[in-house]
Simulated scan of single mutants.
Amino acid sequence: MSEPNLDVTTVRRLPEDVIDIFWPIYRASFEPLTVRAAARHLLSREEFEEDMRDERILKFLVQDGGRIVGMTTMTTDLDAVPWISPEYYRHHYPEHAARGAIYYFGYALVGPDHRRNRVFVAMLDSMLALLLENRAIAAYDVSRYNDETVKLAERLFIRARQTSEVTVDVADVQTYYAATFHGPRSD
Rank of each mutant, 00 (worst) to 15 (best):
2 S>Q: 15
10 T>G: 05
19 I>T: 12
19 I>M: 13
23 W>L: 14
25 I>D: 06
27 R>D: 12
28 A>K: 13
29 S>R: 10
30 F>K: 12
40 R>W: 02
40 R>T: 05
46 E>P: 14
49 E>Q: 13
51 D>P: 05
54 D>Q: 14
58 L>T: 12
58 L>E: 08
60 F>W: 14
65 G>S: 12
70 G>V: 11
78 L>D: 03
81 V>D: 00
82 P>T: 07
86 P>H: 01
87 E>G: 01
91 H>R: 12
91 H>I: 03
92 H>G: 02
93 Y>K: 06
93 Y>H: 02
100 G>Y: 02
103 Y>W: 08
108 A>L: 07
108 A>T: 13
108 A>Y: 05
114 H>R: 14
114 H>K: 10
116 R>I: 00
117 N>W: 09
118 R>V: 04
121 V>F: 07
123 M>E: 11
126 S>V: 07
128 L>I: 08
129 A>M: 00
133 E>Y: 13
134 N>M: 06
136 A>I: 01
139 A>K: 00
141 D>H: 02
144 R>S: 09
145 Y>E: 10
146 N>M: 06
146 N>R: 06
148 E>I: 02
149 T>R: 15
151 K>F: 10
152 L>G: 04
157 F>W: 06
159 R>E: 11
160 A>C: 03
162 Q>I: 05
163 T>V: 12
172 D>F: 01
174 Q>G: 01
175 T>V: 12
179 A>E: 03
183 G>H: 08
184 P>M: 08
185 R>I: 04
186 S>Y: 09
